[in-house]
Design a protein around this nucleic acid. Structure first.
Lengths: 201, 201
DNA sequence: GCTTTACATGCGGGATCCTTTTGTCAACTA
DNA sequence: TAGTTGACAAAAGGATCCCGCATGTAAAGC
């Protein structure tokens, strides 16, 4: 058979498929009943796999939720990334739309919603302001010099960290319309962004 | 006697003294054993008043802790205020030192420390990111146009809100040396601040 | 105006018990 | 080999009860 050549990529694909199916199942369950009320058996059944497979793949319940949050953040940042790449010529616009999108998506995220609604879910809270913040910040810090190469790594880190902190802050403690907030943040950072982009033309 | 003239200001002064003594006692107790482990009897004893006086003055336990947090925030903002007023000519410096001071004081605040150490104190957490944030933001929004009258109210609100959100974010989830963080925030906002202050001279 | 005493109410901490869930292992199967 | 099944010890999570202490209020006293 041709198993020899196909084997390795197939395995990788199967593994990705498995993880994806499971994490989607987790998403469904978390959105409907929250994380604390979701058991490993629930996830296994919803994903159509055995409970043992979950443990083989993710190791533990807490590792599973970490993987879930990581995927959600990645997806969220992916949306932002495309929005930013869409207008590399207009940095102000990119900043504004990206931040708006971030706030909008974040407010729709079950992770955020659950934390806001039931502040008692301390575990998720820690993970969001810890793992989530670190992840998102790192991704955006990589994105910025990619779209605008003239921006230094340190400056990119600074901006990314600040944007993510502000986004999470507004997600947890809203203050009016997201687009208004984004416009404000955009206005504040616009002059600095200009300085970074245009090295005195 | 001269009681007629003195009476009213004395009463006000006595009331202020009472509140101040009690809130200082609360501070001691919160620093040593945390809020949940502090009873009204403890506060009364530490302040040298009767338990009933506490209820006459503050109404309830939760109102007492709100008053405490309000006073702490006020004190913190007062320090920042003097720092800002000290250098109205150099806005960049004012911004940097004020933010540094804010972070430093915040990290020393028992309120913040307790929340960071024991994330389970959900009540204080809500109060800090709710009442505390609103209070501090409002004070700073008033301070800015006072020192730099050319800054509009809306812009002052925007900057104040953002600074407070960043400060609380860094207090809860630190990222290295406060002075470095302040320098970064200062650099980011510097161009915007310049635009606000100097209407194209 | 503050203190003291007294008191009803209620919240929170322990102890106990039982249920469920977690995490692991070995045997089974396509 | 990768996944399923069934079984299992250990641990986590409620539910319940009890008790004590803290809260909040009201009276009387200085």
């Amino acid at each position: 058979m041709a198993t020899r050549v196909v084997r390795i990529p197939y395995q990788a694909a199967a593994r990705t498929l498995l993880r994806d199916t499971v994490l989607t199942a987790v998403d469904d369950l978390v959105r409907s009943r929250g994380w604390t009320a979701t058991t490993m058996s629930d996830v296994a059944e919803a994903a159509g796999v055995s409970r043992q497979t979950l443990y083989n793949e993710f190791g533990s319940r807490s590792s599973l939720v970490e993987a879930y949050i990581a995927r959600e953040i990645e997806a969220l940042v992916a949306h932002v990334t495309t929005a930013v790449r869409a207008s590399p010529d207009d940095a102000h616009r990119a900043l504004r739309t990206a931040f708006t999108l971030f706030l909008k998506l974040a407010s729709d995220e079950p992770v955020v919603q659950i934390i806001v609604a039931d502040a008692a879910e301390g575990e998720l809270h820690r993970l969001l302001t810890g793992l989530g913040q670190a992840l998102a910040s790192e991704r955006i810090a990589h994105l910025i010099p990619e779209v605008w190469p003239q921006v230094g790594v340190a400056d990119a880190r600074l901006v990314a960290d600040t944007l993510v902190r502000l986004a999470i802050s507004h997600a947890l403690v809203p203050s009016g319309d997201p687009s208004v907030v984004a416009r404000g943040v955009g206005r504040m950072l616009a002059p600095f962004v200009d300085e970074l982009l245009g090295p005195k033309p």
